[in-house]
Simulated scan of single mutants.
Amino acid sequence: MDLFTSFERLSLNQITTEKLTLPEAVDACARAEVPWIALWRHKVEQSGLAASKRIIKDAGLQVSSLCRGGMFPAATTAGRQARLDDNRRAVDEAAELGAEVLVLVCGPAPDRDIAGARKMVEEGIEQLVPYAEASGIRLGIEPLHPMYAAERSVINTLAQANDIAERFRQEQVGVVVDVFHVWWDPDLYTQISRAAGRILGFHVSDWIVPTPDLLMGRGMMGDGVIGIRRIRHAVEAAGYAGLIEVEIFNKAIWELSGDDALSLVKARYIEHV
Rank of each mutant, 00 (worst) to 15 (best):
L3A: 12
F4T: 01
T5D: 13
S6C: 07
F7T: 05
F7A: 04
S11V: 07
Q14G: 08
I15K: 02
L20G: 03
L22F: 13
L22G: 08
R31Y: 00
A32E: 12
A32N: 12
V34G: 00
P35E: 04
I37Y: 04
A38M: 10
R41F: 01
H42A: 01
H42V: 11
K43T: 01
V44L: 08
E45M: 10
A51G: 00
S52F: 05
K53C: 07
R54P: 00
R54T: 10
I55E: 13
I56L: 05
K57G: 14
G60N: 10
G60E: 05
V63M: 04
V63P: 00
C67D: 01
G69M: 06
M71R: 08
D85F: 03
N87C: 11
R88T: 02
R89A: 09
A90W: 02
D92P: 02
E93V: 15
A95H: 10
E96Q: 12
G98I: 11
L102S: 05
V103T: 14
V105P: 03
C106N: 15
P108V: 09
P108K: 13
P108T: 08
P108F: 09
I114L: 14
G116A: 10
K119L: 15
K119Q: 15
K119M: 12
M120G: 01
G124F: 01
G124M: 02
E126I: 02
L128V: 06
P130R: 02
A132D: 06
E133A: 15
A134S: 15
L139T: 03
G140I: 12
E142F: 04
E142S: 06
P143R: 03
L144W: 12
L144H: 03
P146M: 11
P146D: 05
M147K: 09
A149L: 14
E151M: 07
S153T: 07
V154W: 04
V154Y: 06
N156K: 10
N156S: 14
T157C: 07
T157M: 10
A159G: 07
A159Y: 07
D163G: 06
A165I: 11
F168C: 07
F168A: 10
R169M: 02
V176K: 01
D178Q: 11
F180E: 01
W184P: 00
D187A: 15
L188Q: 13
R194T: 10
R194V: 06
R194I: 12
A195G: 09
A196E: 14
L200K: 06
G201E: 08
V204N: 05
W207N: 05
I208K: 09
I208W: 03
T211K: 15
T211P: 00
P212C: 12
D213N: 15
D213G: 10
L215N: 07
R218Y: 06
G219H: 09
G222H: 10
D223P: 01
G224N: 09
V225M: 08
I226G: 02
R229Y: 13
R232H: 13
A234V: 11
A237L: 12
G239E: 09
G239I: 11
Y240T: 06
Y240E: 07
A241H: 15
L243I: 05
L243H: 05
I244F: 03
F249T: 00
F249R: 06
L256W: 01
G258M: 11
D259F: 02
A261E: 01
L262V: 04
L264P: 00
V265T: 09
A267C: 04
R268C: 12
Y269S: 04
Y269L: 08
